[in-house]
Design a protein around this nucleic acid. Structure first.
Lengths: 111, 111
DNA sequence: TGCGAATATCCGCATATGTGCAACTATGAA
DNA sequence: TTCATAGTTGCACATATGCGGATATTCGCA
């Protein structure tokens, strides 16, 4: 049995940054040139470029030159579902928190 | 509009470790006592405990004492889907790699 | 050729994360 | 109480990651 867990962990690590998540979300709508991404994401040019490099190394996106600009596109469509699944977890978790808060409200005995 | 991206990123960061992924997979089958987890995961006791703490803080798992042992259980069922989505991405990506390898094989002109 | 716009990479620094060991806490039984 | 068992936390250290500024590279065009 292969070392699967490190590979999975690495995948999640790749997604574990706001800028990279934003990039993937934008790319899951349509492909974007770097300067387009830069216009929609709050990050320095070099910083964005580094994050794009991370995504490239992870094999999630593809780089191609088109009349003078570099265009990035999503290489693995399933990434979209992964992002949605993440959103769902976030949603479920806040619900739990809300229910907990509710319970705490009902049970008046403090500390 | 809230700072959603950092929250998402934090979620993925929580999953970004082999031990934590393994724990969540085990917990998505059924609840486990700590020493059970320890028996199935290659990690020091204190190390496992720290990873469990990370999962707790993230609100993904719950801790409860049952006749002398601490039992962990999954608090957010959607985590299961998230893990599956991760698996799917991994699968798609290796397929891409395989196709690329194929193409490279067919086109014989080296470097 | 030589320029300029668009990107990528290098560098040094600051911060975050993972780890084992040791010490501490909690629980149940004698 | 006292002990043994089960688990958690604090600590110091090593490594990884993120960042902006400067520099390098690539490509289309005059």
């Amino acid at each position: 049995m292969p070392a699967l867990y490190p590979a999975k962990a690495e995948l999640f690590r790749t997604l574990a940054h706001p800028v990279r998540i934003r990039v993937l979300e934008l790319l899951s709508e349509r492909e974007h040139a770097v300067h387009e991404l830069l216009g929609r994401i709050d990050a320095e040019q070099s910083n964005l470029s580094q994050h794009l490099a991370v995504l490239r190394r992870a094999g999630l996106v593809r780089q191609s030159r088109e009349n003078g600009e570099v265009v990035y596109s999503l290489l693995v469509p399933a990434v979209r579902d992964l992002l949605l699944a993440g959103r769902a977890v976030l949603r479920d978790r806040v619900q739990d928190t809300a229910e907990l808060a509710d319970e705490l409200d009902r049970a008046e005995d403090a500390s």
